[in-house]
Amino acid sequence: MSLANRAYSEKRNFIRMRVDSPVDIELTDDDGHINGICCELSGGGMSVEVDRALPVGTQMTIVLSSSHGHSPMLKATARVARVSSGPNERCTLGLEIEQLLN
């Protein structure tokens, strides 16, 4: 099926997967560290819940861990592409994966 034949919500390069796994975030610019939960993962990015908002464009290294204790599932550099939050809620960051790391 071509992209033109899909419903609008399906026009993505990669399918999103629900993962609900811990993610460690090392901020590139200020040596900060944030823990969060990766809610969705795709081939080009991820959605992560954290305790504080970060500015769009913030660069970071992410390490996505297995919820079963296995070695890291994913290590990559990423940047904040989107931020959403509400009053008294955790913040959701839309991260764009820039480079996979070993």
Rank of each mutant, 00 (worst) to 15 (best):
P22A: 13
N35A: 13
I37Q: 14
T61F: 09
M17C: 12
A76T: 12
D31A: 07
G94S: 05
V80G: 00
V19S: 05
G45D: 08
V48Y: 00
Q59K: 10
T58Q: 10
G43V: 12
L64G: 13
G57V: 07
V23Y: 04
L41S: 10
C38P: 08
N13D: 06
V83Y: 04
T77Y: 08
D31E: 15
S84K: 05
G43W: 07
L27A: 04
I25H: 01
M46W: 02
V83Q: 02
P87V: 13
L3W: 02
V56C: 05
T77S: 06
R6E: 12
A4D: 10
G36P: 11
S65R: 15
L27Y: 14
V83D: 07
T61N: 03
Y8M: 11
I37G: 05
C39Q: 15
E96G: 00
S9E: 13
V63L: 08
S71D: 15
E96S: 01
P72M: 11
S21V: 15
S67M: 09
Y8G: 00
Q59D: 14
P72N: 13
S66A: 14
L3H: 03
N102F: 10
K11E: 06
V23F: 03
A81F: 04
S71G: 14
Y8I: 12
V48C: 04
L101Y: 11
S21D: 14
H68M: 14
R52W: 13
R90I: 10
P22Q: 12
P87N: 06
T77G: 00
D29S: 04
C91Y: 09
D31F: 13
L41W: 05
Q99C: 09
S67Q: 13
G36M: 11
E98I: 12
I15H: 02
L100S: 06
L3N: 02
T58S: 06
N5R: 00
